[in-house]
Design a protein around this nucleic acid. Structure first.
Lengths: 121, 121
DNA sequence: TCAGATAGGGATAAATTTATCCCCTATTGT
DNA sequence: ACAATAGGGGATAAATTTATCCCTATCTGA
């Protein structure tokens, strides 16, 4: 496992939420788990661009941050279900606000983002 | 300047907002600019943990994404002012929601974040 | 004349994050 | 016996992001 070499900045609230939401797939993981897609394989299918490995790592971090819980069913083949914790559920309105904003401005966002990417060829 | 080697995933709305808000200091930059701290040197003082260089880079990206505008006054010593664009202003309620959530859960957030960091010694 | 403030940027190093590859467990079906 | 399925994880490589270092310019004040 990777070990930080620097201490995180935790001055203001915005640093704090950053610490737990920073991660390429974390917001979507929370979102999809809230939508009822709780099993790892399901999440992998919902987010095919992420490798299995990375999703596991990020799920683990979300669990360490107590935003989700992991329930293991002692069956074979193994079955695992992630759920939002009470704490994690409080984040859903915030994520919903982010999603809503993006949807409202989707066209413009695509434009400004692609302007950058395309200019690089 | 760094050039991406992979194309960003822009499937859902949450990818889009991620593209423009991803960056260690961006959210705070937007927030402080909205609060009226518009000059680069002021922003640097508000965010002393970031180097001058990185703030410039991230401000440039916010500008490229049309969330802020940069106004240069032709005086010496140079004077520059950043403002939120119309578009950038629409993001403020979202950032406010993030800040509010963090403030509400500050104690718990510090706890879960530090649990990780501290265990690494 | 030299330090400091103001704003900026190139080159490069370090840190961090993501991706790839390969391996493990146990059961069911072929 | 072997593949497929379910869930995981270590080691390492690649990509990306942040930080450091140093250099530019002009004016003001000591």
């Amino acid at each position: 496992m990777y070990e930080r070499k620097t201490t995180p900045n935790l001055n203001c609230g915005l640093d704090l939420i950053g610490e737990v939401l920073y991660g390429k797939w974390k917001i979507r993981l929370l979102w999809f788990i809230d939508q009822g897609h709780q099993r790892p394989s399901e999440l992998q299918r919902k987010i095919p661009d992420a490798s299995r490995r990375v999703l596991n790592v990020q799920l683990k971090e979300l669990e360490d941050h107590e935003l989700i819980t992991r329930k293991i069913y002692p069956v074979v083949p193994p079955k695992v279900e992630y759920r939002l914790s009470e704490f994690g559920r409080t984040l859903i309105p915030v994520i919903a606000a982010m999603g809503q904003w993006s949807d409202q401005h989707e066209a413009r966002l695509r434009e400004v983002i692609l302007k950058q990417t395309v200019s690089a060829d």
